[in-house]
Design a binder for these strands. Structure first.
Ligand SMILES: [Zn+2]
Ligand SMILES: [Zn+2]
Ligand SMILES: [Zn+2]
Ligand SMILES: [Zn+2]
Lengths: 133, 133
DNA sequence: AAATGCAATGTTATAACGTAACAAGTACTG
DNA sequence: CAGTACTTGTTACGTTATAACATTGCATTT
């Protein structure tokens, strides 16, 4: 996985970092075609899998899209707040929340492994700036 | 003429209630074909939209699947714990967690509207009974 | 170096999920 | 009945994701 794969991954990560909103796998595919003419879907999905596995990017389950990690990279789950107006996504890290959720689950015998926490709403900019109050 | 839509919705709900795991829209479509030969995808999606809107069922964003509400029906968001082993899903209601999540989001100016909380892991039965050691 | 074997990558095809757009039916109104 | 508004059916397509297999690159052995 040394040569080509890493280059694709770097490019995917770069595109996601430059985007103000999450991008779908096929959005990324379009971008890649600028520099790599014949990339196909599985190539992008492989890069996305590697990057998510490493924590460099996060998948938005409720959007079927991907975003760069805003903390750079981290091993834990985070809380994503998705603006339904402008599409921007904020990332929060809160061990406390994960702790509480894990506790809740464990109370019913469940052993948590991964937390998906996505909050839909309207971001501060859209609330204050343009949206109706 | 009773509305056809309501009948489909009742059947979808019944199938979901009898299932021990979430079902995809196309799984449901298969079931419906037993009694309604020519149902098409949009019909199922309309029924699912009506049922989710009413809170009778929940969509699992990280699974692209649907489950019956285990509380019968409610207006608030719930916490779903998904067993990666047997596929069963547990539902917890915790206003406190929603409160905390909303607080977190609001601290950065975000106005929450809907919470997606899905915990992946292994359920008590699979942990204790047969699954892992 | 040539042969071997394995893992990464490329390629094709198709599966799975979801919706737009319009046609047809139904129920009410005047 | 004709007109209207709404619901349901149907077709077709768009989007998201993966299975399966071919090919390439590179290290290890001989
Ligand atoms: Zn992150
Ligand atoms: Zn916004
Ligand atoms: Zn419920
Ligand atoms: Zn289980």
């Amino acid at each position: 996985m040394t040569k080509r794969g890493e280059e694709i991954q770097r490019q995917v990560l770069a595109v996601l970092r430059q985007s103000s909103t999450p991008l779908s796998a096929y959005d990324l595919l379009d971008h890649l075609w600028d520099s790599h003419p014949k990339i196909a879907a599985p190539t992008v999905y492989r890069a996305l899998a590697a990057l998510t596995g490493r924590g460099s990017i996060h998948r938005l389950e409720s959007l079927n899209a991907y975003m760069a990690c805003q903390c750079g990279s981290h091993p834990h789950d985070s809380i994503l707040s998705i603006c339904g107006d402008c599409g921007s996504v904020g990332e929060q890290v809160s061990p406390d929340v994960l702790e509480i959720l894990s506790g809740l689950a464990q109370a019913s015998g469940f052993t948590p492994d991964r937390h998906v926490i996505e909050v839909h709403g309207v971001c501060g900019i859209c609330t204050g700036g343009a949206g109706a109050a």
